Simulated assay, not measured.
Amino acid sequence: MSHISPSSAAPSPHGGETPAERADRNLVELLQELRVVQTGVQIVFAFLLGVAFTSRFPDLDTFERATYVVTLLLTVVSSAVLATPVALHRGMFHRGVKARIVALSARLAEIGLVFLALALNGAVLLLMTVVLGRIAGIAIAAGTLSLFIGLWFVLPKALLRPSP
């Protein structure tokens, strides 16, 4: 029985693609998804940078300032994690490890989405706390966090389960 390596050119049962072709396609699709998500991260980051220079910023209480700092840092972390697949591709392409790049990049994208969801909810918490008060801000942020968890994490896993 022969062993076929992932980098071999033998076609797979996946629509006639070779493992190398599948890795190429998967990487292109992943990088396109990350491009879209990265735009959202940049918008949140720009908003947060601007907040510190508004006239109301000195009036924020300790909770609001802590929410701001944590949210800003979550945005930076999400940006770094979501951009890492691009850096991996740049640093490792043409080295015969594209399948490894895709696997690691897919995991990094998942981790980046967690940080992005937390950052977006931190922004919601900050805004709603300033506009509506702390209790309303926490309640609304809990609702939006539930929305992200449901749509970004629970729904994809539910769709992967076999239907009865």
Score class of each variant (00 low, 15 high):
S2V: 02
P6W: 06
A9L: 07
A10V: 05
S12Q: 06
G16R: 02
A20W: 02
A23K: 05
D24E: 11
D24R: 07
R25M: 09
E29H: 12
L30P: 08
L31I: 12
L34V: 15
L34N: 15
R35D: 02
Q42V: 15
V51D: 08
A52C: 11
A52R: 10
S55C: 01
S55T: 13
R56P: 01
F57P: 02
D59K: 12
L60T: 04
L60M: 03
F63D: 13
E64S: 08
A66R: 09
Y68P: 07
V70Q: 05
T71A: 14
L73H: 12
L74F: 15
L82H: 12
L82T: 15
L82E: 15
P85N: 09
V86K: 00
A87W: 03
L88R: 05
R90M: 05
M92C: 01
H94C: 03
G96A: 00
G96S: 02
G96L: 00
K98C: 01
A99N: 03
R100N: 06
A103G: 05
E110F: 12
L118E: 14
L118F: 15
L118R: 08
L120C: 14
N121L: 04
V124G: 11
M128K: 03
T129Y: 09
T129M: 05
T129W: 09
R134H: 07
I135A: 14
A139G: 04
A139T: 06
A141H: 06
S146F: 11
G150F: 06
F153A: 01
L155Y: 07
P156C: 05
P162Q: 04
S163G: 13
